[in-house]
Design a protein around this nucleic acid. Structure first.
Length: 235
DNA sequence: GCGACAG
DNA sequence: ATCTTGTCGC
């Protein structure tokens, strides 16, 4: 029988590391045959200072016009601490709930974090791609592992990210004279295609429009949830 | 043992 | 990630 879920989330950090070593074997670093992209989605989560809960969500954009066509969000308790290298175990539970509410399926997912540019080659984007079964890309604002040489200062300039002798991603300048973003494939994805899509979804700002929309959505949802909590407090 | 360390 | 106002620069 086919399993309904990839795995549960009730894990300790040690168990999570072991699970990553198993899941990495399932990651496919090439795009599906005949793959066409009509819709691209951005995913993100947001949390309040010391609160044990977070909002998470997706915004789906038309790949051609970059106009938002659908969105979904959720608010859940955070069940896993932030541990560098284990970010997906903190962020994916709430995203899984938001995904269940998303009525329009994207052909591509862009995550705010690493894909293969990860100590065990299983960053947030790889794990998320496996979980949702959709081609995915990791586009982070800073590096987790690896180094890269200098890159040109114009938009479109790139430099390979090397880790343990492997090219695990690319630093990509999405805006001239602005710090680069770090792109790496997630699942059902390859590096050149990942870079191509990040540049395609970027124009005026450093980060892809997908990420910016998702960021805005989850922040609004979190503030609404916070206001709701305050209302319950003094009533 | 000493740093580094996505969000 | 989040806490936060003004401010430097194209």
């Amino acid at each position: 029988m086919e399993r309904e879920t990839l795995h549960g989330w009730n894990l300790t950090p040690t168990e999570a590391v072991a699970l990553q070593r198993e899941l990495r074997e399932r990651v496919v670093l090439r795009v599906p045959e005949g793959w066409k992209v009509e819709r691209v989605a951005g995913a993100d989560i947001s949390m309040s200072r010391g609160e044990p809960w977070a909002s998470g969500g997706f915004v789906v954009l038309d790949a051609q016009t970059r106009a938002p066509v659908a969105q979904a969000s959720a608010v859940t308790r955070l069940s896993f601490p932030y541990v560098p290298g284990l970010l997906s175990f903190r962020e994916l539970p709430v995203l899984e709930e938001a995904w269940a509410r998303l009525e329009v399926r994207p052909d591509l997912l862009i995550f705010d974090g690493q894909g293969t540019a990860h100590p065990r080659r299983l960053g947030l984007a790889c794990h998320g791609g496996l979980l949702f079964g959709v081609p995915s890309i990791g586009c982070a604002k800073s590096l987790l592992v690896g180094k890269h040489g200098p890159l040109g200062e114009e938009r479109g300039a790139v430099a390979d990210i090397l880790h343990q002798g492997e090219v695990v991603g690319r630093a990509v300048r999405t805006r001239s004279k602005v710090a680069p973003v770090y792109v790496s494939p997630g699942h059902l994805m390859d590096l050149p295609t990942a870079v191509e899509w990040v540049l395609r979804m970027t124009s005026r700002y450093r980060e892809p429009e997908t990420t910016r929309h998702a960021h805005r959505l989850v922040n609004e949802v979190r503030r609404a949830a916070l206001a709701d909590k305050a209302r319950t407090w003094d009533e």
